[in-house]
Design a protein around this nucleic acid. Structure first.
Ligand code: FES
Ligand code: FES
Lengths: 147, 147
DNA sequence: ATATTTCCTACTAATTTGATAGGAATAGTT
DNA sequence: AACTATTCCTATCAAATTAGTAGGAAATAT
């Protein structure tokens, strides 16, 4: 249905959480899971991908945890989603031409490619820092509403 | 993986095929299936959606078949994909807020919404007529190559 | 040593996707 | 009226993907 899987959605929230706590040193997965209300066990599966993509660092053992490998302003949402969901294209054959026999003359493929590029551009234009700012503003707004 | 399902992909090819044969009256599903190399039985499932969306007309019985309900220039790829895949948004909660408890303060949701709008815009800017033109140009190019 | 935490692997359950099958309803043709 | 060709409808099945759980090994600080 053209949906992101939970990998991408949970991953975005995970990274946003790490960005919010960027100055707090290593953050416990347990705490992220609690704050974001996501199963700790499931979220564990996301971390190797994020690490392989060079987006986070980890330390094990007591006092261990996770933290961003770069400043929030240096990490785009595109990197996050892509590391978890794979290529951001609506059709496999855009990135793996061998899966379709019709690649050489298929018009729809050209369009799927273009759509994928638009998605990439959009996600690339948003950094974790932007998201932290957005979150702060949201917090303010809801406080105002409560007065 | 942020992929379109075969519904959307096959549907786009089906509609392109109908657009190419727009002047030929009712077109047989059998012929579309043969030309596009898609299982006739499976493609059958797509047609009710396209019809419900007012994109095609059908006639049953002998000499029956399918044809576009509007001129190719009046049908955007967005309508086609949307009728088959549902809302063009990367996360369910954008369109059905009740599925997440965090809607009121969730930043990622705002972003998924924006991405969905970009996808919509891109698909909306392409009509079946555009696709037919693209196909013609492809045909020309490949002929040239063969000389 | 001990407690805490990441890391790794295997397994299971649930959902979605892709595909097939059989026949009812409809419309033209003879 | 009988016949043929086609859409239309529903049920079913198989395969693949996604979501989630479990158990324990490896590493690090105290
Ligand atoms: S959809 Fe893959 S080549 Fe057309
Ligand atoms: S992902 Fe649905 S509200 Fe955040």
């Amino acid at each position: 249905m053209m949906k992101l899987s939970t990998k991408g959605r949970y991953g975005a929230r995970l990274m946003l959480d790490l960005a919010i706590h960027y100055d707090d040193g290593f953050v416990l997965l347990k705490d992220i899971a609690k704050r974001q209300d996501i199963s700790e066990g499931y979220m564990e599966h996301l971390l190797p991908h994020l690490k392989a993509a060079g987006l986070i660092n980890s330390l094990r053992g007591a006092r261990g945890g996770y933290k961003l490998a770069k400043a929030p302003s240096e990490i785009s949402l595109k990197e996050v989603v892509q590391s978890l969901e794979g290529p951001l294209t609506p059709a496999e054959c855009v990135v793996a031409p061998s899966v379709c026999k019709r690649v050489s003359f298929c018009v729809t493929r050209d369009i799927w490619k273009e759509v994928g590029e638009k998605i990439s551009q959009t996600l690339e234009s948003v950094t974790l820092k932007d998201m932290v700012e957005m979150q702060k503003n949201k917090g303010k707004a809801s406080l105002t509403y409560n007065i």
